[in-house]
Simulated assay, not measured.
Amino acid sequence: MNISKIVITATLVAATGAAFAEASYPPEVSFVSSKTRAGVIAELKQESDEDGLNYAASAPPVLQPAASTKTRAAVKATLNADATIANRELDVLRINVGH
């Protein structure tokens, strides 16, 4: 009975401590802009008038899958010929087993 009271008390203390932990990290620093809203809107209008806004340049590139020119046998032959590969004995065992 005493152990259950201790466990309940410890749980309540931990929950209370977590509830009062409201300090923000990192500490909030007030930001002061050097430009006005009108100045930013004027810059955007100028860029759009000069066709300087290029949204496609800021988008992530679409990657095309690479087409390999080597066959599986050629890759295996290259790996077998490379003497710097660690665990050569395991590689030889895998090749001989057929995996």
Rank of each mutant, 00 (worst) to 15 (best):
residue 1 M to Q: 14
residue 4 S to F: 11
residue 5 K to P: 14
residue 7 V to Q: 08
residue 10 A to S: 09
residue 10 A to I: 07
residue 15 A to M: 03
residue 15 A to D: 03
residue 16 T to D: 05
residue 17 G to L: 04
residue 18 A to I: 03
residue 19 A to M: 04
residue 19 A to C: 04
residue 21 A to H: 09
residue 25 Y to F: 05
residue 26 P to C: 00
residue 28 E to N: 08
residue 29 V to D: 02
residue 30 S to Y: 01
residue 31 F to R: 14
residue 32 V to P: 02
residue 35 K to D: 03
residue 36 T to F: 05
residue 37 R to G: 10
residue 37 R to V: 12
residue 38 A to P: 00
residue 38 A to G: 03
residue 40 V to T: 05
residue 41 I to R: 08
residue 41 I to L: 12
residue 42 A to C: 06
residue 43 E to V: 00
residue 45 K to A: 01
residue 46 Q to L: 02
residue 47 E to H: 04
residue 47 E to N: 05
residue 49 D to V: 04
residue 50 E to F: 08
residue 51 D to C: 06
residue 51 D to N: 11
residue 53 L to H: 12
residue 57 A to E: 14
residue 60 P to C: 06
residue 60 P to W: 06
residue 61 P to W: 06
residue 65 P to F: 08
residue 67 A to V: 15
residue 68 S to W: 09
residue 70 K to W: 04
residue 70 K to G: 07
residue 71 T to E: 04
residue 72 R to M: 09
residue 74 A to E: 14
residue 78 T to D: 09
residue 78 T to L: 05
residue 83 A to R: 09
residue 86 A to K: 15
residue 86 A to F: 10
residue 91 D to I: 02
residue 91 D to F: 03
residue 92 V to P: 01
residue 95 I to H: 14
residue 95 I to F: 09
residue 99 H to R: 10
